[in-house]
Amino acid sequence: MGLPLRLRAALVSVLLLVVFLLAWQAGTAGFRGGGAGLPAGMDPEYAKLMGITASSSTSAMPSPGDVGKQLWALLSDPFYDKGPNDKGLGIQLAFSLGRVLLGYGGAVLVAIPLGFVIGMSPLMSRALDPFIQVLKPISPLAWMPLALYTIKDSAVSAVFVIFICSVWPMLLNTAFGVASVRREWLNVARTLEVGPLKRAFTIILPAAAPTILTGMRISIGIAWLVIVAAEMLVGGTGIGYFVWNEWNNLSITNVIIAILVIGVMGMILDQILAYVARLVTFPE
């Protein structure tokens, strides 16, 4: 086996996927074996009256082929808009991404400067610690009623929930990264008479950047987890709402597709931050 590890791993991945799809196919084939699913001796006409075939054809588990076909259909026209309950997958995804980026962006703007302050000042670190300890473990969705009540706008409330859940990992990582910048690097800046602002940007920021990026990566993962749940609650638009809506329509095919899309999008967001993290990481 002279193949490089990466290639072998890829082969195994493909193999696992094929096995999974075959098992899925085999599992769903049973549901739709013509009249085989009907109770023995039942007249098909009678069965139709009873609604057995009618319901089984829509609520039964779709086969991989069905999902593939539907996926193709949805992806080939992702941006159509036929009213509030029928929008393209791309539009729904864009709504969700927009909310995540707004909430997450706001969290970056708050968490990184505040993390700097906490990391550089032992006083602020101790003073703010009790608040952070209490606020951090609160499930972001627990904020939802309060957000809806005070903000009154469901879309903004979802953004707020994203903000509140993304802020903690970034805040704590930034504070930790800033506080653990090596003393000798700070001493270099001091002996070169580098001013505080320049020191923050040329020494502390690059030194803490890998730790900050780790926090940002954790945060984007949490934000993407939370947006789906938040949109199920507030409704209206977004990929989370799409999942809920398709469940109400009993379209399991669309639910599966949405799950797939959520997973892929989450992976893309994570990989973007992993890439940025690689840019700012330095070997020692």
Binding site: R182, E184, W185, N187, V188, R190, T191, L192, E193, I203, P206, A207, A209, V280, F282, P283, E284
Partner: peptide, 19 residues
Amino acid sequence: DGPSLDRAVIFQSHALLPW
């Protein structure tokens, strides 16, 4: 009274900025 560019330090641990 404080560090100055008049006095340069060569640190034992070299203290280079790795980035």
